[in-house]
Design a protein around this nucleic acid. Structure first.
Lengths: 220, 220
DNA sequence: CCGTGGTTGACACCTCGCTGACACCTCGAG
DNA sequence: CTCGAGGTGTCAGCGAGGTGTCAACCACGG
């Protein structure tokens, strides 16, 4: 899942980003409104985490633009103000959810995840295919009941593939959705990660290759 | 927008329904879990408003079922419990949003509307001709239900022919459209690929030859 | 401050199935 | 019968994708 964090207080921005990355998300950070708009022009995000109190281009303005243009992008608005009228104002602006600061990080992650599920066709919170089970919330994956010890990247790739069950996913798409920022197009990291995932998943093979098209999990 | 309200306390259920109808939504009400499941079987809802504390089939159970089966239906969960762990639990179950009771009706409406605002992604068309089925999105092709194992070029040619169903497609056109870059005009690769495709497609023949004009799939 | 273990990504090499060329065959039109 | 468009059999090269290994990096604890 690809997330853009728009927050001018850099320490907070980075700590949010790190926390989300640990959950296996691809996170970009924008420290002001203009940087945010640049990012939004370049990349398709699933979720935008937006500080409403922003210098330069205001949070409200960004929110309106995202809501107006990006059909598949959801906005989680953060703000110091916590009154009901503020919350409604945020939602009416086009935000999809609203969290007053200070917030609990666990709840924050749960909300980002819920929004990410909403960004495309709805996905169940626990992904299952055959004897494979992935629970993004708990950060746990099991194969035939046996727990798999996956690194964040491996987990994120598995989660993404499972979310597209039945369809092949190209290496480019994986790079775009699972890795942060623009990666060099000749990287071999996807190949490598897939290999390590396959090794950990064991037999029989779950991830199959569709030549020229990508990797696929599950039935056709 | 079509909404199902699942709430056992009838007075509350009706007042919610009335309020949402005033906002121009089509609202059905279910007073218990079984009624809810009946409704869900019969109708496609955009949003389900779900009381977590439900007699009979529990709210959690309903939530899970909706999340698992309904691709385009979003769940707003209402609950008396307001602790963070409860809220996270709701979201992890597959709810898309969460509102603790008592809630402000304006905010409630804003959230329902935010949930309903989503564009169904235009599904890539599935190409069909007779008993032949090609799904470009899944990169899968079947004949009479039997899966065809096609190479990338074979798949691309089949897809292109099917997109021009009924019209003959010349070898030159195929070269132009399926093989990138200008190939040498005397190549025999189209011929060869068509042959292999025919072999894999089996009997009765699907691709017929129109002399001097090219290859055709489907009725004239 | 430095070592340690785990994660990540690069590079070199290998493998195998796809691709496309070539030679030859078939068949219908004139 | 002749001719040429189109079909078939076969084989070599090539490149997408898999694998082994190593170095950079980072979070952590001493």
């Amino acid at each position: 899942m690809r997330v853009l964090v728009i927050e001018d207080f850099e320490v907070l921005a980075q700590s949010i980003a790190t926390g989300l990355r640990r959950e296996g998300m691809a996170v970009d950070v924008a420290l002001d409104g203009n940087a945010a708009l640049d990012h939004l022009d370049l990349t398709e995000y699933d979720v935008v985490v937006l500080d409403r109190d922003l210098p330069g281009v205001s949070g409200d303005e960004i929110c309106r633009r995202v809501a107006a243009s990006r059909a598949f992008c959801r906005v989680l608005m953060l703000t110091a103000a916590g009154t009901i009228s503020d919350r409604v104002a945020g939602l009416e602006l086009g935000a999809d959810d609203y969290l007053p600061k200070p917030f609990d990080f666990t709840e924050f992650v749960a909300r980002v995840r819920a929004l990410g599920r909403r960004s495309g066709p709805a996905l169940p919170p626990i992904l299952v295919s055959g004897d494979l089970r992935v629970d993004p919330g708990r950060h746990s994956a099991t194969r035939a009941g046996r727990r798999l010890e996956l690194s964040p990247k491996e987990f994120a790739v598995l989660e993404y593939l499972l979310g597209r069950e039945g369809r092949p996913v190209s290496a480019e798409e994986l790079l775009e959705r699972v890795w942060d920022e623009a990666a060099d197009p000749f990287t071999t990291t996807v190949k490598t990660t897939i290999r390590r995932l396959r090794a950990k998943l064991g037999e029989p093979a779950v991830i199959c290759t569709v030549r020229e098209a990508g990797y696929r999990i599950g039935p056709t």
